[in-house]
């Protein structure tokens, strides 16, 4: 019931992660145009023709298994003639995404793809997209004493008993992942306890606040897999999935989810 009359899309998600865009005011022959923010390559643009037939009016479906690069995608309506216009968000019925982690079969090799539509601060419609193989999905986090217990599921790779939890200090040029803690493995499930002291130890030479990104190395010869939380309907976890700060050895540590919903720990000395 807003007064601003510009085209809006209602979205309905299904359990496969597919998004159905319904643009009632779309003219015949119009298409949905998705553009990745900051992208210039041909694959940073995706056109989905709007099908005018159907009870709900013109609609287009973004399949859950369609490749879509990781990042933020702006959603436009492209009329048959004329320039594309940014779509306004309508009603996003994302109930099928709420507990999506349960729908994924861990152990397969298919990429984990997740897209969550959201309303930007300028009230435009965008999607945030992830596409990861393998993918480590975080479940509950528990802060006990000066230890952060992280549980989760690994998709798209095998977990070995010698898996490790690793951390990397996020500063320019610092690209080394350092092992921090052993991992308990049960099928595709992992659990690890990260002692904040280990991070402090690794960074004793440093002053000021530090951010540590966290990853799971499934096997000694495998590449580290970022731990993230993407299999639900919450596009930006940072302000919603928040965790207690812990004082330890002269500093404070707090786990948080980054702008792309990757797990990190912030330490302030």
């Amino acid at each position: 019931m807003t007064a601003v009359e510009r085209p809006a899309a209602d979205i309905v998600a299904d359990r496969s992660g597919a998004l159905c865009f319904i643009v009632r005011s779309a003219p015949t022959g119009a298409a949905l145009l998705l553009r990745r923010r900051g992208g210039t390559a041909p694959e940073d643009e995706l056109r989905l023709p709007l099908d005018g037939n159907g009870a709900d009016g013109p609609h287009a479906i973004l399949r859950g298994d369609l490749p879509l690069a990781e990042g933020r995608w702006n959603v436009h309506l492209e009329p048959p003639e004329g320039k594309p216009v940014r779509l306004a968000p309508g009603l996003n019925d994302l109930r099928a995404l709420v507990d999506r982690a349960a729908d994924f079969r861990a152990g397969g090799t298919a990429p984990v793809r997740a897209r969550i539509p959201y309303k930007t601060v300028e009230s435009n419609l965008s999607l945030v997209s992830w596409q990861r193989t393998p993918h480590a999905e975080a479940a509950d986090l528990h802060v006990t004493g000066a230890t952060l217990r992280i549980g989760g599921l690994l998709y798209g790779a095998g977990l070995t008993p010698s898996a490790t939890l690793e951390a990397r200090r996020r500063t320019d040029g610092d690209v080394l992942w350092e092992p921090m803690a052993p991992v308990t493995v049960e099928g595709p499930r992992f659990e690890a306890g990260l002692p904040y002291g280990a991070l402090a130890e690794a960074a004793r030479r440093l002053t000021g606040p530090q951010i540590w990104d966290l990853a799971l190395r499934p096997a000694p010869d495998a590449a580290p897999v970022r731990i993230a939380r993407i299999l639900d309907d919450v596009p930006l976890k940072k302000q919603i999935f928040t965790y207690p700060a812990t004082e330890f050895g002269g500093g404070t540590a707090r786990p948080y989810y980054t702008k792309s919903n990757d797990l990190a720990v912030r330490i302030e000395g």
Partner: peptide
């Protein structure tokens, strides 16, 4: 929520417009 250790079960979602899409979750 943090004091009671409920941070894996209770979430402050912020304002949502429209709210109609949130109830059915």
């Amino acid at each position: 929520i943090e004091k009671r250790g409920l941070y894996n079960n209770v979430f402050l979602m912020g304002a949502a417009h429209p709210l109609e899409a949130e109830w059915p979750k």
